[in-house]
């Protein structure tokens, strides 16, 4: 029961307290307007180059933009404790670490999912891309898997954020890597071979492929394999992130570097 309380209530409180982007003055420009313009930028780039369709860029960028809320929020809700000098207090509690840190990821996943879904809806209206009504349900499930998987990578970023100061720079670099490697704007088959080999090992690449298939008429069952692989990649990153947080916690206690800024 305590673990459930830590997971749900503790996670939500930490998210609200530490992810200051929830202020509408930041949320609206950063997480609602900017992704729509990213979609437009690449849709027009595709039109100018005569490569890909509007639907291709719409789906790719709507899914890929989940990286901003997922990676930044996850890094803020854990590494932000260090900035606010509360990490020591959190780690001094007897609370089990798994629900403590994993609970913070649930609101992050929901937020990332909402951002992707909003971008997809607004982007499709602006660009005139028709997505069949029957596809929205499977798309919603697919976007949720993508957001969860990307939050796994966010846990790794949060772990790194326990040691490095510039989490904003780190988050932006992770976003840039996903932009290039996930197939959001360049089909994985058109990437240089070494990039195409890296792509399946990063979050969002399978989600983007699955979402494109669903928009083209596939059912959830047709993309089940892709979603399972995406979930696997996300779990792998989440596991690495949680282990890294635990190791860095132990190392910080040993070297008294817990709240060093």
């Amino acid at each position: 029961m305590t673990s459930l309380r830590i997971f749900f209530i503790g996670g939500l409180i930490s998210f609200r307290a530490l992810f200051n982007w929830l202020s509408p003055w930041i949320y609206v420009p950063s997480l609602l307007i900017a992704p729509v313009f990213q979609v437009l930028l690449f849709a027009y780039l595709g039109r100018s180059a005569g490569v890909g369709s509007d639907a291709f860029y719409l789906v790719g960028n709507a899914v890929q933009y989940a990286a901003i809320p997922c990676v930044f929020a996850m890094a803020n809700t854990i590494a932000g404790e260090r900035q606010t000098q509360t990490l020591g207090i959190v780690l001094a509690t007897p609370a089990p670490r798994l629900p403590l840190f994993l609970g913070r990821s649930l609101p992050v996943v929901v937020n990332g999912w909402l951002v992707s879904l909003f971008t997809l809806v607004v982007g499709s209206l602006i660009l005139g891309v028709t997505i069949p009504w029957s596809s929205w349900g499977p798309l919603a499930v697919t976007l949720a898997v993508g957001a969860a998987s990307c939050t796994g990578l966010g846990l790794v970023a949060a772990a790194i954020g326990l040691r490095v100061r510039e989490t904003a720079v780190l988050g932006n670099i992770v976003f840039g890597v996903l932009l290039l490697f996930s197939g959001a704007n360049v089909a994985v088959s058109a990437l240089p071979p070494w990039m195409a080999a890296v792509s399946p090992w990063l979050p969002l690449s399978h989600t983007i492929a699955a979402a494109r298939e669903i928009v083209a008429g596939a059912s959830l069952g047709d993309v089940g394999g892709l979603l399972l692989r995406e979930a696997g990649v996300g779990l792998l990153y989440a596991a690495v992130g949680l282990v890294a947080i635990r190791l860095l916690e132990a190392s910080s206690r040993r070297t008294a570097s817990l709240e060093r800024l």
Binding site: A49, G50, V51, A168, I173, L179, A190, L191
Partner: peptide, 21 residues
């Protein structure tokens, strides 16, 4: 650093898109 690196991600994406035509 970021202002130096950030546009490179987008430039590379643009190059990869334009290269296809």
């Amino acid at each position: 650093i970021l202002q130096f690196v950030w546009p490179l991600f987008f430039a590379t994406t643009a190059f990869l898109v334009y290269r296809q035509n």
